[in-house]
Simulated scan of single mutants.
Amino acid sequence: MSVRPEIEEGTRLEPRFDAAGTLPCITVDAETGEVLMFAYMNQEALDRTIQTGRATYYSRSRKKLWVKGEESGFVQHVRELRIDCDQDCVLIKVSVEGGASCHVGYRSCFFRRLKPGSSGELEFTESKKVFDPEKVYRRSS
Rank of each mutant, 00 (worst) to 15 (best):
E14D: 09
L46K: 08
W66K: 11
K128Y: 05
G117D: 09
E14C: 03
Y106T: 12
G120V: 13
E126L: 06
D47S: 13
S59T: 09
K128I: 07
G105F: 14
P116A: 11
K93H: 12
C25T: 14
T32E: 14
L91I: 15
N42G: 00
G99P: 05
I7S: 02
G73R: 12
V130W: 02
S101H: 07
D29L: 01
E80S: 05
K129H: 01
L46W: 12
R82E: 01
C102Q: 02
R82K: 13
T32A: 13
S59F: 11
R54Q: 10
S141L: 13
F38D: 00
R82T: 00
R48S: 09
C89A: 14
T125S: 00
V35R: 15
Q76L: 12
L13P: 10
V78G: 02
T125K: 03
V130Q: 05
R112P: 03
P5L: 01
L114H: 10
S59M: 10
L13A: 05
E80P: 06
I7C: 01
L23M: 11
V136M: 01
K128H: 10
I7F: 09
I83E: 05
M41F: 02
F124E: 06
E71C: 00
Y58N: 06
T32C: 13
Q51L: 13
V90F: 14
W66Q: 02
N42E: 00
R107D: 06
E123I: 11
L122S: 08
C109D: 04
V78R: 07
L65Y: 13
Q87I: 10
E126Q: 15
E9Q: 08
A100F: 13
E70T: 08
H103V: 03
G117E: 10
I7H: 08
A55K: 01
K129Y: 03
C109W: 13
S141W: 15
V3A: 14
E44I: 12
D18K: 08
D18I: 08
F17V: 10
P5F: 01
E34N: 08
R79V: 03
E8P: 00
F124G: 00
R82N: 02
A30L: 06
R107A: 08
P5D: 01
R4H: 15
K115H: 11
R62M: 05
Q87G: 05
G21Q: 03
E123A: 01
E126T: 12
M41C: 03
C109P: 14
R139L: 05
P5N: 02
G105E: 02
R113W: 10
D86Q: 10
A39V: 04
S140G: 07
T22F: 10
C25F: 02
V75Q: 05
I50A: 02
Y106P: 15
Q87N: 04
M41K: 07
K115S: 06
V104S: 05
F38K: 09
C89G: 05
L13R: 07
R113H: 14
V104K: 07
L46P: 12
F17M: 09
V78W: 11
M41T: 04
T22N: 12
Y106E: 03
T49L: 03
K63H: 14
G10Q: 06
E134F: 11
S59C: 09
R4T: 14
R107L: 11
G33E: 07
M1R: 07
S119H: 11
F131L: 15
S127A: 11
G117W: 15
G117F: 14
G10S: 00
S140V: 12
D86H: 14
K128W: 02
R62Q: 10
V130E: 03
R54Y: 15
